[in-house]
């Protein structure tokens, strides 16, 4: 399954997003944003490892996590 990467504004949002996902049964980890490097400058991303990525992204948006981009693959 292709990995869904949610690129966020900052490490704080990445950590917050990971917590939100974990509390709702999604697996994820925080990583440096290398998928869209150069587009946004330095940043972090949440890599979703289990659970429906579409629902995970909706959940993050519902919690006002500032998402820059969602990259699949």
């Amino acid at each position: 399954m292709a990995l869904t990467t949610v690129i966020v504004s900052s490490i704080t949002y990445a950590m917050k997003g990971q917590r939100i996902l974990a509390n709702n049964g999604f697996g994820s980890y925080v990583d440096r944003d290398i998928k869209a490097y150069g587009k946004y400058g330095c940043g972090y991303c949440i890599c979703i490892t289990s659970g429906d990525p579409g629902r995970a992204v909706e959940l993050l948006r519902a919690h006002q996590i500032k998402i820059k981009e969602v990259v699949t693959g």
């Binding site: 504004s9 900052s10 704080t12 400058g41 330095c42 940043g43």
Partner: peptide, 17 residues
């Protein structure tokens, strides 16, 4: 430096950065 949106010359407008 905040470790975020580094290509922008403006300070991030979001907290806590």
């Amino acid at each position: 430096g905040t470790g975020s949106v580094s290509l922008e010359s403006q300070q991030p407008d979001f907290m806590p950065d």
